[in-house]
Design a protein around this nucleic acid. Structure first.
Length: 932
RNA sequence: GGGGGAGUGUCGGAAUUGGCAGACGAGCAUGACUUAGAAUCAUGUGCCGCGAGGCGUGCGGGUUCAAGUCCCGCCUUCCCCACCA
């Protein structure tokens, strides 16, 4: 038999499919459309196994949909603007464009080797002017709509990336940069923002989309809507400066619990609150100013202190509680944030834990909660949980809190003119300015006469100049490019300067799903305000995306931005739906495989507790069988490397769980050799012991898909990535597990290619069984592909392959066999497209397997004639009986009671009842003779 | 502190949504074919026990004829948010 040779047949079919434009997608009104999309890669130079893990199941599903009769669009492109290109330019004197396009070229080839059904005619690369002129166009549109504005404010700045970041791109408590992990600092800068907050409420509505619960929760928390009231407290008149304007003393606070207003005993302002300096009394001035300075510095330094002891100072001023006229002190404290609510709070120490802690520390009044004497246990318990009846609150005593007390108090505040119902969000407007070169220019000009002037639509694109000098500091070269910088004002014709900031790359990827529909639309033609960035006919047919797949790490970045974009584009009249992706599913992450370290055999001598090495001999972890036994001797140390840095090795110098560890110092004069390796080795080449960790180049635990494809073929890699893990969870790579898939695909090959040595005569029962296996497989594979359960898809296909292996001797050469094997190949086509195509053609079937209809199952074929059902006695299985599948309950009961082991177990027991649920199981309940 | 995942053999993971726990693989063991190995094929493989049998889905309760699955109370772990008023 000719062996299965994926290295030969995969490129062959890839060429054929391309020649025949098999995956070209075009509008066809007679067919239902299906827009399948998977997140596009950033062209960093090499696709890693994670890209394959994300993309191949998505491809399999797109292929499945196509066979089901949908007109499928499955495009691919590159998110090609971004910092790494610019850093490469600085480090290696290569232009970002050259670097990027070279990487695109390479990754495109890698993607082709996957054998995916990407429609390359629709490829879009975001750094090309044909693409980014529409990104600029959209900026102008948003500006026109009032969705883009420029504002000076304290913003997050990454000192390493040398640029500002959006709130979403600052991660965690350490407030580190999403890209490089450097802690960000605050800077006061004039920046461009997009008014995503306008859509805050709409972003909370997921009712029309099928997205994972996890992502919906993440986005909901990110938007952080809270309902409550704004209440106006007035600063005591004597604390206001003489030049105070009317209304200046109004201190607006936001609270979610207006029903606790009567319990407010003091107020707290954020240190940055504008009123602080106006109301602080002369005697408190110095204290307050010192505190403000410290608070500013605190936000700039890392705020890592886990012990968050409350700090604050008294302003000397008082305010009047509007609901009861109480005169309460106004404090300044950094636990109140200027960026949330109004930067001022009323403090209710009886109700709020933080207020309580603050009041206690500074001896501020804490009112005692008084329970009415007639409260019972239940009411007290509720009060303990924050629920209860309102007390000491004027007109609201006796009302149930928090509801309906909150609503009643809000209505009352509005009636009295003291406040109003209000909603607050955690979501901030999206800061899109980046102080870097490699991004889409912000199409705006600054004129001394006219101020901010948008570049006219007709003048787009504002091109990134190629002839720029990159600074080692990373500072944008656009600032020094006179040709780019100096321009004339489109309004008055006078001299003006261009905006040198570029847009966040997340802007480019916020609309790429529409860019694919007609890439670089109308390139070379002049655009106008009423143009469209895409072909309206394509949009009408394909959009929105039906199924989107990609990493969950984008939950509060790309995935929220693109929803915002779609809503804004809808309001601009550019499209007529509300959500970009109707269904979204996310995959997990493939982590590095745990491994032993290399073994080192070191000669040297001891100096104190450290062993100084003269010579290090490395024995690779791959040759574990030939490792010498661990040693810790006077002049020799030997064992597995557990860890490594530039100058030392941690070596495990004893067997067993305890693991004695010896530190080996490696100096200038130490020589390192490895058998089979030319020349002197270096510390960086020594592999150290790894637990499960993320893949990274420095740990040398990266799995390269190209190598796997070269060794096993793309179909095997595809199938293994679908089989090895629950797709949505991911997990550590297992280099042995792939062998199971190799064996399977070889069995599939042999199934079609190898005549059986032995023949059997088919019996009718075997034929029914074969048919049942076909239809069972069709049903399971169809349902599991639909439900993104890729690992069980493969398991079911393996089972089916095994069943065919058993049937082969009896059915080889018969129409039944042909039918059964064809079924397997059709089900296999989305998973292993090359192998399926090859075997399909070798069976003499018409090209192409990918243009065949997906098989359907017949429910009648799934029914078995005889079934084996378990018999339980008091919940334990005591035997099995085989009965006709359609046997009635009485027949089944009789069969069960006649079964030998059941009979034996029942001896001397009294049957209480017998249950036969759905005819699939017999459950007998017995009691002992003595009635127990 | 708040929110959301996850916890099943040695490992990856299955379990018509309450119905025989461990599908499908990996690994391991034994056997066949080989001078030998690799490959392949066959068989076995949750744990304890020679056996009958008992015990088993993070832990403790509960509901039920029947619980990995439902309810109550915990533990561990990962992720997100966090002086958010």
């Amino acid at each position: 038999m000719e062996p299965y040779n994926p290295q030969e047949l995969e490129p062959k079919w890839q060429r054929r499919w391309e020649e025949d434009a098999l995956y070209k997608s075009s509008i066809d009104a007679t067919q239902p459309k299906f827009y399948a999309l998977t997140m596009l890669p950033y062209p960093s130079g090499d696709l890693h196994i994670g890209h394959w893990y994300a993309m191949t199941p998505s491809d399999a599903r797109a292929r499945f949909k196509r066979m089901q009769g949908y007109n499928v669009l499955f495009p691919m492109g590159f998110d090609a603007f971004g910092l790494p290109a610019e850093n490469a330019a600085i480090q290696r004197a290569i232009h970002p464009k050259t670097w990027t396009l070279r990487n695109v070229e390479h990754e495109r080839e890698q993607l082709r080797s996957m054998g995916a059904m990407f429609d390359w005619e629709r490829e879009a690369v975001s750094c090309l002017s044909g693409y980014y002129r529409w990104t600029e166009w959209l900026f102008l549109k948003f500006y026109e709509m009032g969705l883009a504005y420029r504002k000076k404010s304290p913003v997050d700045y990454c000192p390493n990336c040398k640029t500002t970041l959006a709130r979403e791109q600052v991660i965690g408590e350490e407030r580190i940069c999403e890209r490089c992990g450097t802690p960000v600092v605050k800077k006061d800068l004039a920046q461009w923002f997009w008014r995503i907050t306008k859509y805050a409420d709409e972003l909370l509505d997921f009712s029309t989309i099928d997205w994972p619960e996890k992502i919906k929760v993440l986005q909901t928390n990110w938007v952080g809507r809270s309902e409550g009231a704004e209440v106006v407290f007035k600063v005591a008149p004597e604390n206001l400066p003489a030049d105070a304007k009317p209304g200046e003393g109004d201190l607006v606070v936001f609270t979610t619990r207006p029903d606790t207003l009567w319990g407010a005993t003091f107020m707290v302002l954020a240190p940055e609150h504008p009123l602080v300096n106006r109301i602080t009394t002369a005697s408190q001035k110095e204290t307050v100013e010192t505190y403000q300075r410290e608070a500013t510095r605190q936000t700039e330094i890392e705020r890592l202190s886990t012990e968050k002891e409350k700090t604050g100072v008294f302003t000397g001023a008082y305010a009047i509680n509007p609901v009861n006229g109480a005169r309460i002190p106004v404090w300044v404290a950094d636990y109140v944030l200027m960026t949330y609510g109004t930067g001022a709070i009323m403090a209710v120490p009886a109700h709020d834990e933080r207020d309580f802690a603050f009041a206690k520390k500074f001896s501020l009044p804490i009112p005692v909660v008084i329970c009415p004497p007639d409260w019972h246990g239940e009411e007290l318990a509720e009060a303990y949980h924050g629920d209860g009846l309102v007390v000491n609150s004027g007109p609201f005593d006796g009302v149930m809190a928090p509801h309906p007390a909150v609503e009643k108090v809000i209505a009352w505040l509005e009636e009295q003119g003291l406040g109003k119902g209000a909603v607050n969000y955690r979501l901030r407007d999206w800061l899109i300015s980046r102080q870097r070169y490699w991004g889409a220019p912000i199409p705006v000009v600054y004129c001394d006469q006219c101020g901010i002037v948008p570049v006219p639509y007709e003048e787009l694109p504002v091109l990134l100049p190629d002839d720029v000098d990159f600074m080692p500091t990373g500072e944008s070269p656009l600032k020094y490019h006179q040709g780019f910088l100096n321009t004339t004002c489109p309004k008055c014709g006078g001299p003006a300067t261009r905006e040198t900031d570029t847009m966040d790359t997340f802007v480019c990827s916020s609309w790429y799903q529409y860019a694919y529909l007609s890439p670089y639309y109308k390139e070379g033609e002049v655009a106008h305000a009423d143009s469209s960035p895409w072909d309206p006919a394509e949009l009408k047919y394909w959009a929105p995306v039906d199924t989107y797949t990609g990493g969950a790490e984008h939950a509060t970045m790309h995935l929220i931005y693109t929803r915002f974009f779609t809503k804004a584009l809808r309001d601009a009249g550019l499209l007529d739906f509300d959500e970009p992706m109707l269904q979204y599913r996310c995959q997990g992450i493939i982590l590095g495989e745990p491994r032993d370290g290399d073994c080192v055999d070191v000669t040297g001598h001891w100096e104190g507790s450290a062993f100084l090495a003269d010579h290090v001999q490395v024995i690779s972890f791959k040759d574990r069988e030939s490792w010498p036994a661990p040693v810790r001797g006077e002049t020799r140390v030997c064992g597995e490397v557990l860890d490594r840095d530039d100058v030392s090795l941690k070596v495990r110098t004893s067997d067993g769980a305890e693991g004695e560890i010896t530190v080996v110092q490696v100096g200038e004069r130490t020589t390192i050799t490895e058998p089979g390796r030319e020349g002197a080795g270096s510390m960086a080449d020594i592999l150290y012991h790894l637990e499960v960790e993320k893949m990274s180049k420095s740990k040398k635990n990266v799995v390269a898909p190209d190598e796997l494809v070269a060794k096993y073929g793309a179909d095997t890699v595809r199938a293994y990535l679908m089989f090895g893990w629950r797709w949505e969870l991911g997990g550590p790579w297992d280099s042995k597990g792939i062998e199971g898939v190799v064996r399977w695909l070889n069995r599939v090959w042999a199934l079609v290619m190898e005549e059986p040595y032995r023949r059997e005569t088919p019996v009718p029962e075997a034929e029914r069984e074969l048919l049942r296996a076909v239809h069972t497989a069709i049903k399971a594979v169809t349902e599991d592909l639909e439900g993104f359960s890729f690992n069980t898809v493969i398991a079911r296909l393996m089972e089916y392959t095994n069943a065919l292996g058993k049937a082969k001797e009896a059915f080889w050469g018969t129409p039944r066999w042909d039918e059964a094997v064809s079924g397997l190949l059709l089900l296999l086509a989305p998973i292993a497209p090359h192998l399926a195509e090859e075997l399909w053609s070798r069976m003499g079937k018409p090209y192409s397997v990918h243009q065949q209809a997906w098989p359907t199952w017949d429910a009648a074929m799934l029914v078995e004639d005889m079934i084996e059902i378990p018999v339980q006695i008091n919940g334990k299985v005591r035997g099995h009986v085989t009965v006709a599948a359609d046997a009635d309950e009485e027949t089944i009961k009789a069969a069960a009671l006649a079964e030998a082991n059941v009979k034996a177990t029942l001896a001397g027991k009294k049957i209480v009842k017998i249950i036969v649920p759905r005819g699939r199981l017999v459950s007998i309940v017995v009691a002992n003779q003595d009635g127990e």
